[in-house]
Design a protein around this nucleic acid. Structure first.
Length: 255
DNA sequence: ATGGCTTATTGTATAAGA
C-alpha cells in the first residue's frame, strides 16, 4: 500500500500535475491540501476517468482538503468536533482497513499574530480528537501539510529562522504532543539526512538552491510502522512548469 | 537589502501563503 500527501496550492491550476502523478505512481491514497475550491467545482469526473474516487471538503479561495483513492473509502469524517471553525482543514476516511487522516494545519503567518494563536488553538483541539481516533483505529496515518519543521535539520538555515513561524518552540511542542500519542515520523524512519525538504519558496530561486523546509509529514501508529517499507519525498513535480511550492511525500507499506 | 513569486478575487491592488 502506497500513501502520499501533497499541498497542491490550487487544485484548479494543478489538476494536470495531479493526474500525471497518480498515473505514474498509482497511490492507494493521496491526500491533498489547499484545493482552494468549493465542493461543487471539485473535479470528481476527471479523477473518476483516471480510476480514482475522491472525497473533499473545500471552500472558495483558501484551504480545502481531499483524499483520492482507487479503493472504497468508508467512515468519512470532516472537521474537528467541538471546535467552531469555518476553515476546511480536515478530512478522514478508512481505506483497506487503514485510517487515513488528512490535515492542512494553519500556517500561523507570524509568531504572536492572531493567525499564530489560531494555529495553536487548532492543534490543541485537534490533538485530543486524534487520540480518540487512534484508539478506534490502531492502523492510522496522519498525513498533511503541518506547517511545522520539527527539528533544525528540517530547515535550510536554522540560525536565520530561530523563533520564526514554522519552527517556533510552541509549534514544535505541539508537534511533539502528536508524537507523544505514540506516532512516528514515517519519513525519518528511512531517511535521516539533512537537506531533505518538502517545500521551497517560489522566490529567491529557492528550489534550485535547496532553500527549503520539511513541513509536510506522514505520522504513523506502531501497527503501521511495523509494516512500513519505504518513505521518500518526490521532487519530480517541483521541476515542472508552474509547480506547486510543495512536493509529494510518500510512504510505502507491505499490505 | 526583510524583497524576490504564485494564487484568487466582482481585481487593475490586495491578501495570503511559508
Amino acid at each position: 500500500m502506497k500513501i502520499a500527501t501533497w499541498n497542491v496550492n490550487s487544485l484548479n491550476v494543478r489538476l494536470p500535475h495531479v493526474l500525471d502523478w497518480i498515473e505514474a505512481n498509482k497511490p492507494d491514497a493521496l491526500c491533498l491540501q489547499e484545493t482552494k475550491q468549493e465542493d461543487i467545482k471539485f473535479p470528481y469526473d476527471a479523477l473518476k476517468e483516471a480510476g480514482y474516487n475522491a472525497i473533499h471538503t473545500g471552500q472558495k479561495t483558501y484551504n480545502g482538503v481531499a483524499i483520492l483513492s482507487p479503493h472504497k473509502m468508508t467512515d468519512v469524517h470532516t472537521a474537528i468536533p467541538n471546535f467552531a471553525d469555518e476553515q476546511k482543514r480536515l478530512i478522514a476516511a478508512t481505506i483497506n482497513g487503514v485510517r487515513i487522516v488528512c490535515v492542512y494545519i494553519p500556517n500561523g503567518q507570524a509568531v504572536d499574530s492572531d493567525k499564530y494563536q489560531y494555529k495553536l488553538n487548532w492543534l490543541e483541539a485537534f490533538t485530543p480528537w486524534l487520540q480518540t481516533e487512534i484508539a478506534k483505529y490502531p492502523k492510522l496515518a496522519l498525513l498533511g501539510d503541518y506547517n511545522i519543521a520539527p527539528e533544525d535539520v528540517d530547515c535550510h538555515d536554522p540560525a536565520a529562522w530561530v523563533g520564526q513561524v514554522l519552527v517556533s518552540p510552541r509549534e514544535r511542542d505541539a508537534f511533539k504532543k502528536l508524537i507523544q500519542l505514540g506516532l512516528e515520523d514515517g519519513f525519518r524512519l528511512f531517511d535521516k539526512n539533512e537537506g531533505q525538504f518538502s517545500w521551497w519558496d517560489y522566490r529567491m530561486a529557492g528550489f534550485r538552491r535547496n532553500l527549503g523546509m520539511r513541513i509536510d509529514h506522514i505520522l504513523i501508529t506502531p501497527a503501521l510502522k511495523e509494516i512500513s517499507t519505504a518513505s521518500y519525498i518526490d521532487k519530480t513535480p517541483r521541476k515542472l512548469e508552474r509547480p506547486s511550492d510543495h512536493t509529494p511525500v510518500v510512504l510505502e507499506m507491505a499490505v
